[in-house]
Design a protein around this nucleic acid. Structure first.
Lengths: 249, 249
DNA sequence: CGGGTCATTGATGCTCATCAAGCACAGTGG
DNA sequence: CCACTGTGCTTGATGAGCATCAATGACCCG
């Protein structure tokens, strides 16, 4: 149990072989072509971010976009008294603080270790304006993000704590499928196993709950046999069907 | 008190002189040029919708986009058991079911009387692909919608009922400034007066509350002198400053 | 008039936040 | 090597906030 956690941690620390920098050189997932990636890399500065740290020296987000090379980050909105709501989770390879996006007062923090490119916003926007097909892809991405945000709205506005947790687990499956030590993506791990990059408190900030409620609802689903923990961060989904019922849709 | 309500109703029923059809002919607010409006109108069918009715004979939304000429509509996501969350409110002139948007299972219903153009999606998308600047404007609009959705996420995830209602009132001010009978936009009405197009239940569906809670929180803000009702749907914001405090930000 | 929708208000109870205690583990420095 | 401290997680006890259920009034329309 402890073993597993340490192995997972080790993976997160050593740059793994398969993932995201490679994808970047091939073009940021499906978003950029290899050429466009190079073009953007050429005007960017690369930085390493430690977990919990803010990506940008504060309000530089108006000046820069961020290309996420490695790691997971959370995009939050804050209230004056410290309450926060995570509005989106981004895993490499992805783009944050999209070109042309209105200001909109968010805070972006690393969840895991992360590598980013800071791309000067104005230069990036110029590139996009000269590249019809790139703008089209960014436009599609924005519409997908909007659709995701609406899905989360339904969860926050109308679902119970139990339903939120079940929904969360279903959505995270696939996005954070567990990777076994030393192997390439996802072989040798029981299918349906999930390495959560988030703490209980962060899951709460994503689902509009307290960390205690998150913990209790996980425990309830575990007692009912739908999921199983080998470690607080490593979940096995045992019964996807019942979990879908528990998710209320 | 009754008088006012009847006048307001009369305005909603008679096509008013100043508003939205005119704007459409001048180009759907800032979104379309006059030429583009004509081009789109040419391939569209016009329809009238009564309050509460669904805009499209159901899942035709995959086939059509909607240009809203007049009226207010709500875009909702549904749960199997009937719970619903309004994810966005649109007032004419605006566009719904954006070109290139992923499917995403929403229901769109009229809040007031409404006039729409149904635009065949595929044809609309072709037009957009031949018009660089139009796609750019739609892209910007998508990013604004995303930003708005994120703001609502914070409200639903982290604010109390009281804060949600105060936030709602602040946001609706300006979007639904009251129009006095027979006059053009907004003269002769006490400034800060607001004609809510939504029922208490709809406000609840927007804010993730029940209609009883909406009603009680309105009553509380009224008792505290921040707002005043001349009619259940017509609100006067008396103290914007305290309302902002009550909104939690 | 009767039936429908919308709104208000009260009584009650459930869900989830809050407060609090304790455990496991990692990192630090004596 | 072992306290010491800090962080993350779990679990229990309590209470607040909001949902639910119910009754009533205002208005509209056929």
């Amino acid at each position: 149990m402890k073993q597993l956690a340490q192995e997972a941690a080790a993976i997160n620390k050593a740059s793994p072989p398969c993932p995201t920098c490679v994808e970047w050189q091939c073009g940021l997932g499906s978003l950029l072509t290899a050429d466009e990636s190079r073009q953007i890399a050429a005007i960017s500065t690369r930085r390493h971010i430690t977990p919990g740290a803010e990506l940008m020296p504060d309000s530089d987000l108006h000046e820069s976009c961020v290309a996420l090379l490695r790691g997971v980050v959370k995009v939050s909105r804050l209230l004056a008294d410290g309450r926060q709501q995570i509005v989106s989770l981004k895993a490499a390879p992805d783009l944050l603080g999209a070109p042309f996006a209105p200001p909109g007062d968010v805070s972006i923090r690393a969840v895991t270790e992360a590598e980013i490119y800071c791309v000067p916003r104005h230069a990036f926007e110029s590139i996009v304006l000269q590249n019809r097909s790139l703008e089209h892809r960014l436009h599609l991405r924005a519409l997908e993000d909007l659709c995701e945000a609406e899905t989360l709205l339904l969860t926050l506005g109308r679902k119970t704590a139990r339903e939120r947790i079940a929904t969360f687990l279903l959505e995270m499956t696939g996005r954070f499928r567990a990777v076994e030590a030393g192997k390439r993506c996802g072989e040798g791990v029981e299918p349906g196993t999930l390495d959560l990059p988030l703490t209980r408190a962060e899951i709460g900030d994503f689902l509009g709950l307290t960390f205690e409620t998150v913990s209790r609802q996980f425990a309830a689903l575990r007692r009912e046999g739908m999921i199983e923990f080998s470690d607080a961060r490593r979940v096995l989904v045992r019964d996807r069907t019942r979990l879908r019922v528990a998710a209320g849709c």
